[in-house]
């Protein structure tokens, strides 16, 4: 019997807690109820909507952000658990207006169609390249297996990651 008494639950006090996050280099202080997930906090409280909410159960990767450098699904991360941590989102990938090499490659190699998986895909791929600047195909597969894309068939995405790591496959005309 895992479900507890709803009356007791209604009486429960679950006060908001103040959490400090360093989001894309900027410290932010937000007050969140424990049930608020990181993706909700980033989108609704910090106001960065580049991170996408899709399945909200860790099965698509659209909400992937880097938490202290690790790619995590922010839908299965409680914001209260991130106090004092660094969060990097898709908005933090550009250097001013300048796109990162990975972002450029995504555009050049047809890794983007509807774009909804793109922010999460970019964050997973960024984490990959930071750890392994010249990943082989199997490493790319393992790094991006948690990011679903329904548009591209992944061909453009693999090409883009290879290109961004200087392993360009000749582009077919």
């Amino acid at each position: 019997m895992l479900r507890s008494d709803p009356q007791a639950r209604a009486a429960l006090k679950a006060p908001a807690q103040v959490v400090s996050l360093r989001v894309n280099g900027e410290w932010r202080e937000i007050a969140v109820k424990p049930r608020v997930t990181l993706v909700e906090a980033i989108r609704d409280l910090v106001g960065l909507t580049g991170t996408k909410a899709s399945c909200e159960s860790g099965t698509c990767g659209a909400c992937t952000v880097l938490l202290d450098g690790r790619p995590v699904v922010s839908c299965l991360t409680l914001a209260v658990a991130c106090d004092g941590m660094e969060v990097r989102t898709v908005e933090g990938l550009t250097d001013g207006e300048k796109l990162s090499a990975l972002q450029e490659a995504f555009l050049e190699y047809g890794a983007v169609q509807c774009g909804f998986c793109t922010p999460g895909m970019l964050m997973s791929a960024t984490a990959l390249l930071e750890r392994d600047p010249k990943p082989d195909r199997e490493t790319i597969n393992k790094a991006l297996e948690g990011n679903l894309c329904r548009c591209t068939g992944y061909n453009g995405i693999v090409d883009a990651v290879l290109a961004a790591s200087g392993q360009t496959r000749p582009r077919k005309e």
Binding site: R43, L48, T49, G50, T51, K52, A53, T89, V90, E91, L93, T94, L99, Q103, F106, L107, E108, V112, G115, F116, T118, P119, L122
Partner: peptide
């Protein structure tokens, strides 16, 4: 030719319906 909507989509600037506040 490169996608017109590409830069918006790789930077998180693209506004989808769930992003309208």
């Amino acid at each position: 030719v490169r996608r017109k909507d590409g830069p918006d989509k790789v930077t998180g600037r693209a506004v989808y319906t769930q992003d309208v506040r």
